[in-house]
């Protein structure tokens, strides 16, 4: 209702007064986002978490891997260790900051790769349809058939531990859902008349995909992949927890949660800290993607 156009003919005197300010697509997205305080807050939160992880070497008060048997399992609020220590006497603040690095890396990098690969396959499948679509999507369905955790464990188990293998595992797990989203969005765009108009002007498929399809498929895919960041973090934590991800003594939220599990009756609050970090980060990513979806929704 709000985008009733201000008239077309300048001769109309009534129309000369306020007319819609012409802004670009991203401008209008920002304009809607500007008043969405929840999303803005979550964006700021994510920025803070990312910055904290990046600057962990400078921010952390101590060496995250330096253990001290004398200072095991100090409580939160301790004079020297603000958030206490873990079961090996390592400073929790430092470990959480360093652990954020690994966890965020696990959240963001696999999603980026999966978006590129899955998105490309999805767009190809959605645009060409027919047999191409069948081959790509049925292959994806094979991966889809397994629960994602099970699939991740299976792949990670066969590849072995380590950060690199963990990233590959997560990427493979995340490709099918992204491919599906991209395929649906592309098939929808493909059926619209403006694609036919572009074909009628003699454009090549490559040109149509890059200048017409991509720009329309981008927003649903981006929104969806931002929800996957939190899933990826949680999956990575799960793998580390099972010992299939990073190996000790590297700090990682999932791994920390796993090792502190034994101390849960001694220092429950300290043991919960890595879990809280995972929770806050994933909720923030989810809320941001929710807000983005609303803001990117163009009323035709």
């Amino acid at each position: 209702m709000t985008d009733i156009p201000a008239g077309s003919l300048p001769v109309d005197k009534s129309q000369s007064a306020p007319s819609t300010k012409v802004r670009g697509y991203w401008g209008s997205v920002w304009n809607r986002l500007r008043y969405d305080y929840t999303t803005l807050f979550c964006m700021a939160l994510i920025a803070a978490i990312v910055l904290a992880a990046i600057f962990a070497p400078w921010l952390s008060p101590m060496d995250p891997e330096k253990s001290s048997m004398a200072n095991r399992l100090r409580p939160i609020g301790h004079a020297k260790f603000g958030l206490g220590t873990d079961e090996q006497g390592r400073d929790m603040i430092s470990r959480l900051l360093w652990g954020g690095r690994v966890s965020l890396l696990m959240g963001i990098v696999p999603v980026c790769f999966a978006t590129l690969i899955g998105g490309a396959f999805g767009i190809i499948a959605g645009y060409y349809g027919g047999k191409v679509n069948m081959v790509i999507m049925r292959t994806m369905d094979v991966f889809f058939a397994f629960p994602s955790v099970l699939l991740a464990v299976a792949i990670a188990g066969s590849l072995g531990g380590g950060i690199g293998n963990q990233m590959i595992t997560l990427t493979v797990v995340l490709i099918p859902p992204l491919c599906r989203v991209a395929e649906t969005a592309t098939a929808q765009v493909r059926s619209l008349d403006f694609v036919d108009a572009a074909r009628a002007s003699g454009a090549s498929t490559y040109s149509i995909i890059t200048s017409h399809v991509l720009i329309n498929v981008l927003s649903p895919v981006l929104v969806y992949s931002s929800t996957l960041v939190s899933i990826s973090i949680i999956l990575a934590s799960g793998l580390s927890f099972l010992g299939l991800g990073v190996s000790p003594p590297t700090a990682d939220w999932g791994l920390m949660l796993s090792t502190l599990r034994q101390s849960i009756y001694v220092q429950p609050l300290v043991a919960a800290l890595p879990g809280v970090c995972i929770l806050i980060t994933s909720i923030a990513f989810n809320l941001v993607s929710d807000g983005l979806r609303q803001a990117m929704d163009v009323k035709a």
Binding site: P5, G7, L9, D12, K13, S14, P18
Partner: peptide
């Protein structure tokens, strides 16, 4: 009819 319908946000 010349012109377009008025802008309902700013009626004369």
């Amino acid at each position: 009819i010349a012109g377009t319908p008025p802008d309902l946000r700013a009626l004369p």
